[in-house]
């Protein structure tokens, strides 16, 4: 469904040159939930931004359903691929009601049935009709993230790119949003690419996981490997140890990668 091959991104020039994504390759099958995990600055968001079309300074190849993507995306692309961002505060227009936010893509894509579509998608993300004419500041963080998910779903995409969708939320709200994402994926047979710095979140949500460090793919693993600890790379093993909490002795063994 989605194939990324030798993807590279370089920001800046000369002394400021930053090769942020280096030869990254992975394959995501239809209906699969694929994870990208790594520490901050490892290039996870940059990879998603290349796929979604937000960034165009990449080279390499990205294919959706066998068709290579160019830097500029046709409008039809957004019926296939949509993205949800970490920060529900920053990604919603503060002076637009939820209704207006959700109707915007319907108008751009000339879909019609706007009211019905908005009602349907709001109920799908667990927000009652009373939320429809509210503004973002009248919602809690978890409710805002539900709106962001609704906005991604309204064009009925096949692939949803999720960039740290629960990192800004309290754990109890995170649980609700993760449950919602799993339910929607099942019902709509969606394909996910989920970015997170949290191994437990990717392990809960994803079958196959690419571990990134400093722009490079460290290894691609499946979730059973996280459970058994049978990992090839010491970087991944260290991440796994760190995810288990504070262990004074273990910390002395940490290396810089």
């Amino acid at each position: 469904m989605l194939k990324v091959d030798n993807l590279n991104v370089v920001f800046g020039h000369g002394a400021d040159k930053n090769h942020a994504v280096k030869e990254v390759s992975f394959l995501v099958n239809r209906g699969e939930s694929f994870g990208l995990v790594g520490e901050s600055g490892s290039g996870k968001s940059t990879v998603l931004n290349c796929i979604s079309g937000l960034l165009s300074n990449w080279y390499g190849s990205i294919e959706v359903d066998g068709a290579p993507l160019s830097h500029k995306r046709p409008i039809s692309f957004y019926h296939k691929v949509q993205m949800v961002f970490q920060d529900p505060y920053g990604s919603l227009h503060p002076r637009h009601t939820i209704d207006a936010t959700l109707k915007e893509p319907i108008a751009i894509h000339k879909l019609g049935d706007a009211n019905q579509r908005v009602e349907r998608v709001l109920s799908e993300v667990g927000l009652g009709p009373q939320f429809r004419f509210r503004y973002p500041h009248q919602l809690s963080g978890g409710q805002r993230q539900r709106v962001a998910v609704a906005r991604a779903l309204i064009l009925e995409p096949e692939i949803v790119l999720l960039d740290e969708p629960t990192s800004a939320l309290d754990v109890s709200i995170q649980a609700e949003v993760l449950n919602l994402l799993q339910e929607i994926r099942r019902e709509r047979s969606l394909t996910y690419v989920l970015v997170s710095h949290d191994l437990a979140v990717v392990s809960h949500m994803c079958d196959t996981i690419s571990v990134m460090n400093q722009g490079e793919t460290v290894e691609i693993i499946n979730r059973e490997q996280l459970q058994t600890g049978e990992l090839k790379e010491s970087y991944t093993r260290q991440l796994l140890v760190a995810s288990r909490g504070y262990d004074r002795q273990a910390i002395d063994q940490f290396q810089d990668f």
Partner: peptide
């Protein structure tokens, strides 16, 4: 409510 690496991936 925390997702767990050893969890069974059912609803949290």
């Amino acid at each position: 409510c925390l997702p767990k690496i050893d969890g069974d991936r059912t609803q949290l």
